[in-house]
Write a protein that binds this DNA or RNA. Sequence first.
DNA 1: TATATTTGCAACCGAACGGTTTCGAAAACT
DNA 2: AGTTTTCGAAACCGTTCGGTTGCAAATATA
Lengths: 106, 106
Amino acid sequence: MRRDVFQAIADPTRRAIILLIASQAMTPNAIAEHFNTTRQAVSKHLRILAECQLVTQEQTGREIYYQLNGDKMKEIDKWLDQFRKIWESRFNELDKILLTLKNDKK
Amino acid sequence: MRRDVFQAIADPTRRAIILLIASQAMTPNAIAEHFNTTRQAVSKHLRILAECQLVTQEQTGREIYYQLNGDKMKEIDKWLDQFRKIWESRFNELDKILLTLKNDKK
DNA sequence: TATATTTGCAACCGAACGGTTTCGAAAACT
DNA sequence: AGTTTTCGAAACCGTTCGGTTGCAAATATA
């Protein structure tokens, strides 16, 4: 299937699901109550989220609790890190210019 | 069109383009040289990236330089912030437990 | 045991996606 | 002026996506 985290968070419904279960594990039925779609559609989204390990399942009886996997969320954060360095270096360059202007004033 | 940042970064080629032009603005032809697709395919990706304002264009003559818009990248960072708070609070709870255990030891 | 609930899975459908090919417009070069 | 280069836009094609409907399996309840 080759699902990755970035494709998983591309869909707004899936992002809403992630936000919903971030603070508390929930069952598919409970999650589906928050959306205007069928339970099966939510189940499909959960399957995609599980495939890329963004959520983990925990079965108790016939109920399955879905929980957010924070570590996988950090993968996105890690990807953003590449650009933070660039932003930072750009800011430093701007900083140098501002410092130069300051020194020129004196 | 309804393009948003999350859909834009869902495609691996687009993420590669973003990384490529992050440090230096480039023309579509120059970008296309880095991929095994046609220039038109890259142009399509650039259009999508431009639609959600992840990249900005700057025309000089017949060449168009595409540049990454860092502010828009921060939108992703902002979205992640919601979860950082949750991670943090979870850590704090764990921290409390650990502290309690420590105190019990004494 | 019979019935209701919770869930995943398969089939189907219209829309969107990613790609190529083709074309036209504008700028640069000879 | 004629040619080359750079680029976006349109048409087309196969695949994937998000959704619904229907069904089967497993657990709980009467």
